Simulated scan of single mutants.
Amino acid sequence: MASEDEKSRSSHSDALQDAQVDERDQVKSDTIALPSHVAGSGTLDRLVENARDYAKASTAENTNKAYAADWKHFARWCRLKGTDPLPPSPEMIGLYLTDLAAPTGPSPALSVSTIDRRLSGLAWNYAQRGFSLDRKDRHIATVLAGIKRKHARPPVQKEAILPEDILAMVATLPFDLRGLRDRAILLIGYAGGLRRSEIVSMDVGKDDTPDSGGWIEILDDGAVLTLNAKTGWREVEIGRGSTDQTCPVHALEQWLHFAKIDFGPVFVRTSRDGKNALEARLSDKHVARLIKTTVLKSGIRAELPEKERLALFSGHSLRAGLASSAEVDERYVQKQLGHASAEMTRRYQRRRDRFRVNLTQAAGL
């Protein structure tokens, strides 16, 4: 049996090899460079750097992180199997997908959607390295089709936050600076049907910061948010509510006024005592934590154990809440959420008027 010292050396060796693989992958991933026959210059070098920045910005930051993690996992898997991830081998990728769906080790099996996302991550990473991965190759396509046929399940949807829920949640917040900020986050996120990344990426004005994901314009009748979202630029109109206590625009105005914010990120961190607004933009993780915390405090679904209650709600609960609660033509909800199809919008509707059109009776039965 190996001694603790031997195990430690083995673990350190594995970590070192992983780091070396990551470093090689990083070098290989910097694919945008000057042709070998072109001499470098200050201007051309700056253009190369700018081109790399644009290439990185072609996908969302969270997507980049996920794809990087996908490649790291696959590269380590290849090393453990005694092979190399480059060039792409459809046969090995088929085996990799099989191991994700029915792992031979202690790792849990992944869902079909996660496996599909991993494959997309590998295809993207290969493209950045100058290779083409044919997802229709029989070694990949047939294995993936079999995994979907055997393991596919209906998607697990997060619970929608309904009107009575959001009111109960904001009622748990204090009226200090931090409470004003969190109240505006919940109400704006709910009324706008926003993703959590969209909430925290907004600036007060256009082009206030390099990492801006959009800006706001407050008018007499409401607020217009111009957002650079997953599906491109879109405008979101948020009208004023019936009372100041529930009005998202009023909550936003209160936060900006008392936090003295007129430039830069809309939602920022506060000092430890909650009395001063800082310059640092909030992380989208704050939105998820805020939702879970206020759900617990407000007693929503109190009949369930705390762990189950927390698992029911996430940032998507705000978008699902708007889609499920707005009693208007579906087209308006689709536009607000920024969906390309009505079918996608219906996936967010947790309580819609089912059987409004009874085709059975319409067919004469």
Results as ranks from 00 to 15, higher is better:
55 A>C: 09
25 D>N: 15
249 V>C: 02
139 H>W: 12
53 D>T: 09
292 K>F: 02
262 D>E: 14
28 K>F: 09
235 E>L: 04
357 V>T: 15
104 T>H: 11
243 T>L: 11
108 P>V: 01
139 H>F: 13
147 I>F: 05
271 S>C: 06
354 R>I: 08
71 W>T: 01
83 T>L: 10
56 K>R: 14
163 P>G: 02
118 R>N: 14
16 L>V: 03
69 A>S: 11
59 T>D: 05
315 G>M: 10
28 K>M: 14
167 L>V: 08
308 E>W: 02
136 K>L: 13
292 K>T: 04
347 R>D: 15
160 A>V: 05
9 R>Y: 11
119 L>M: 11
117 R>A: 05
16 L>I: 05
266 V>R: 06
354 R>W: 06
217 E>D: 15
39 A>F: 08
259 A>L: 10
245 Q>P: 00
70 D>P: 04
36 S>L: 10
203 D>L: 03
356 R>H: 13
218 I>L: 10
207 D>T: 00
336 Q>P: 01
240 R>S: 03
246 T>K: 09
249 V>I: 07
288 A>G: 07
86 L>M: 10
203 D>R: 00
255 W>H: 08
41 S>T: 01
18 D>P: 01
332 Y>E: 05
200 V>T: 03
237 E>T: 11
151 H>K: 08
320 A>S: 15
164 E>L: 06
68 A>T: 15
253 E>W: 11
62 N>A: 12
67 Y>H: 13
280 A>P: 00
283 S>G: 14
111 S>F: 05
357 V>P: 00
219 L>M: 08
212 S>R: 01
12 H>E: 11
182 D>N: 15
298 S>A: 14
203 D>W: 02
